[in-house]
Amino acid sequence: MTLWIVLGILLLLVIGLTLYVIIIYNGFIALKNTIEQDWSNIDVLLKQRFDELPKLIKVCEGYMQHERQTLEAVIKARSMVNAARSDEQKQQAQNLLTDTLKSLFMVVERYPDLKADAAFQQLSNRITEIEDQIADRRELFNASVTIYNTRLRQFPDVIVASLFRFQPRTLWTIDPEHRRDVEVSFAHS
């Protein structure tokens, strides 16, 4: 009789434990998929920005005859995005493209006629809007990665994670250059 009771309780524990492991495992899979989806969602916006760039460059070319270098930098960065294969390469290429675009918009300040152009205004607004959305989605991606990495190290999830060899993911990082303090000079040249 006692043996049966012990066996029954053991059976209960095994069932409960199995169900819990299944939940944790499924949770990891769901999180991994969420991260993949968040990454792809950034890609959607990056593609939109990528498609808008030729139009922007074409509008700028008409006004910025003396800024070939800046425009070429944007074109080159765009080509790098196209050529990137791994996640890290893609991140670097996108960061570079963001930087070159910032430079382009800074240079545009010197061309009032270009700034007043309706097509340029529309395109720059669109690109700025996409940039904001990309920034939001990067935050979202990083939040998903953080949740996933935290779970990987938490008990009892860490047991399931090591059992099924789930690996931590890397956060979207920015270029270390951007962490430097901005030097502001009020001296007139």
């Binding site: 969420t34 904001d132 939001d136 979202l140």
Partner: peptide, 23 residues
């Protein structure tokens, strides 16, 4: 019980989006 716990996990595992950039 497990549907409640699954829901709890779902809430915890979903990061908050901004409305501007909803996917």
């Amino acid at each position: 019980a497990f549907s409640r716990l699954r829901l709890k996990r779902k809430i915890e595992n979903t990061p908050t989006s901004r409305i501007r950039s909803l996917a």
